[in-house]
Design a protein around this nucleic acid. Structure first.
Length: 338
DNA sequence: AATCCGGGGTG
DNA sequence: CACCCAGGATT
């Protein structure tokens, strides 16, 4: 197809949403929006973007914040390594680079938390470098238009789609092309029930002609989910409780939770070993919390006495100040419903 | 190359 | 329940 770029950019000019990070060339704002939006729908990430811009108007405010403050603002969005890397890179930019972002795809790639997609997005949106973005939308659009069955989660597939997109991108307005193909995937060429009836590419869409729309894109792997059983100790005496900071290489790194004992099944814990000898005054029913690779079965056990011993990563806090700490959604939701 | 890392929405 | 979302780091 010779005029893919024209068709897609024309569609974009008529159908694009008005999003705050589209009205700027500021690499800080572009970068922040791209990190927040990774694996996240615009409707979910938008309020976080606004919150971050208000709290940290420039890379210097972000660099000078504590990691806990950054994680607090990130709370509930998930994939918390994004927030930790965001903060790490802000400090790199503020100190080593005096607040000036790198201006090329190649240099941007060297920053922590910035991969091929984000580097291409920042380089094209801020500096009009003609390097193609390849995100979930782009995989879907291209695999359908060209009816490609090569798996998008293979190394070969990733390389193939990047080169294809790179061959299609316009040199005049690479930023518009990149925005256009992603917006087209998000609004028109959607995962289920794409709007092929009113699609400017339907005449050229090989997958539509072959009847393979529902099969595209192809993924070869399926994620396997493991079950975990969490038992949280909710201490409450005189309005105080204990939180523990998660320091292991595991989910929710550097977030806080009620002190946890993990077991192999959902049987109620009766022996809390060194932590307490008393019986809980209340035990919640099992709460299921779904992550991409884990199914967590959680129970909350309430104790009205102080623990017998306190681990080094525990912190005694006022229950009324618990929201000063970044909490996994599981904990936050339990507090909401309690 | 394979696996891990959240949370929410959809059919 | 399975799949997807403005992906990246680690092993």
């Amino acid at each position: 197809m010779t005029d893919f770029d024209l068709l897609i950019t024309d569609w974009y000019r008529q159908n694009k949403r008005d999003l705050p990070w589209r009205n700027t060339n500021d690499p800080y704002k572009i970068w922040l929006s791209e990190i927040i939006m990774q694996q996240t729908r615009v409707e979910q990430g938008l309020s976080y973007y606004i919150k971050f811009i208000n709290a940290y108007p420039s890379v210097f405010e972000l660099a000078n914040a504590s990691e806990q403050d950054v994680l607090n603002h990130w709370q509930g969005l998930g994939y918390y390594s994004r927030a930790r890397n965001l903060h790490f890179t802000a400090k790199t930019i503020a100190t080593e680079k005096k607040g000036i972002f790198p201006k090329t795809y190649k240099e941007l790639l060297e920053l922590k938390g910035i991969g091929t997609y984000s580097a291409a997005a920042i380089a094209s949106f801020s500096y009009k470098e003609p390097v193609a973005v390849v995100d979930g939308n782009v995989y879907r659009v291209l695999s359908r238009v060209f009816d490609l069955s090569i798996p998008i989660d293979s190394s070969q597939g990733k390389k193939y789609f990047f080169e294809l997109a790179q061959n299609l991108i316009t040199l005049k307005e690479p930023d518009v092309f990149n925005q256009a193909i992603m917006e087209f995937g998000a609004l028109q060429c959607t995962p289920t029930n794409p709007n092929c009836n009113s699609c400017p590419l339907s005449i050229n869409c090989l997958s539509l002609a072959e009847g393979t729309i529902k099969l595209r894109p192809v993924k070869s792997k399926k994620t396997k989910v493991t079950d975990r059983y969490f038992h949280f100790m909710v201490f409450n005496s005189n309005g105080n409780t204990y939180l523990e900071k998660r320091l292991q290489k595991d989910i929710w790194l550097n977030l806080y939770q009620f002190p946890l004992v993990e077991s192999n099944d959902n049987a109620e814990i009766s022996n809390w070993e060194k932590y307490t000898l008393s019986k809980p005054i209340k035990v919640s029913s099992e709460i299921k919390h779904i992550l991409s690779h884990q199914r967590i079965h959680a129970k909350f056990y309430h104790f009205s006495e102080e623990p017998l011993t306190v681990d080094s990563n525990w912190k005694k806090i006022k229950l009324s100040e618990i929201q000063d700490y970044p909490l996994p959604r599981l904990i936050d939701r339990y507090l909401e419903n309690e």
